Computed example of a mutant assay.
Amino acid sequence: MSIHTSPQLSVLDLIPVRTGQSSSQALAASIDLVALADRLGMTRYWFAEHHNMPGVAASSPPVMIAAAATRTERIRVGSGGVMLPNHAPLVVAEQFAALEALAPGRVDLGLGRAPGSDPVVSSLLRSSGPTADVEQFPQHVRDILTMMGPDGARLRLTSGNLYDVRATPAATATPDVWLLGSSDYSARLAAELGLPYVFANHFAGQGMDQIVRLYRESYVPSEAHPAPRTFLTINTVVADTADEARERALPQLRAFARMRTGRAMRPVETVEEALADRPDHLMARTIEALSERWLIGDAATAAAELRRLAAAHDVDEVMVVPVSGAREAEPLDTTPGRARTLELLSETLKP
Rank of each mutant, 00 (worst) to 15 (best):
L253P: 04
N86H: 08
A264K: 10
Y163I: 01
A310Y: 13
S24M: 07
V141F: 12
M147Y: 14
P251H: 05
R340K: 13
I296F: 12
D164Y: 10
P85R: 02
L250E: 00
P226R: 02
A311F: 13
L102V: 05
M283Y: 12
R39G: 09
Q139R: 02
M265W: 12
P115K: 00
F256H: 06
R258A: 11
E247A: 14
R307K: 10
L157R: 12
L195E: 03
T241S: 12
T233P: 06
S127W: 09
P61N: 01
S291P: 11
N161T: 15
T5R: 05
Y197E: 00
T348Q: 07
L295C: 00
V271H: 01
R263D: 00
S218I: 02
S346T: 06
L155A: 07
S59C: 11
A187D: 02
P196E: 01
V320C: 06
A69C: 13
V63L: 06
M259Y: 14
V56D: 01
S183K: 07
D298Q: 13
G325Y: 09
H50V: 04
S183F: 13
E94N: 11
M1P: 11
P54N: 05
P251R: 04
R338Y: 14
L102R: 02
D333G: 11
E73D: 03
T301Y: 13
V212G: 00
G55W: 11
L342W: 09
A311K: 01
L214A: 10
D38V: 08
V92S: 04
V56G: 04
V212T: 02
E269V: 06
E217T: 12
G160V: 08
V323K: 05
E192V: 08
L40T: 01
S128Q: 06
V17M: 08
R126W: 07
A29M: 00
V323N: 04
G55F: 12
T241Y: 10
F199T: 02
R74A: 14
T236C: 09
T172C: 12
T168N: 03
T43P: 09
S23H: 14
L157V: 03
P89C: 06
M64F: 13
A249D: 00
S117W: 03
A245V: 08
L90Q: 02
R308Y: 13
W178H: 08
G262W: 08
L349S: 00
D314V: 12
D333Q: 04
Y163A: 14
D280C: 12
P226S: 01
Q136W: 13
Q21P: 14
A312R: 13
E305C: 12
P62R: 00
L12S: 05
A326D: 05
D143K: 14
I234E: 06
A66N: 01
R327D: 03
M319W: 10
V92T: 03
A28N: 08
A103V: 05
T131K: 06
V134W: 11
D164P: 15
V134K: 09
G297R: 01
V220N: 10
S127T: 03
L84F: 09
D243Y: 14
S117Q: 05
D314E: 05
L14A: 03
S30C: 02
L214E: 02
I65F: 09
S159M: 03
R39E: 07
D184R: 15
P226Q: 00
A284R: 11
H140S: 10
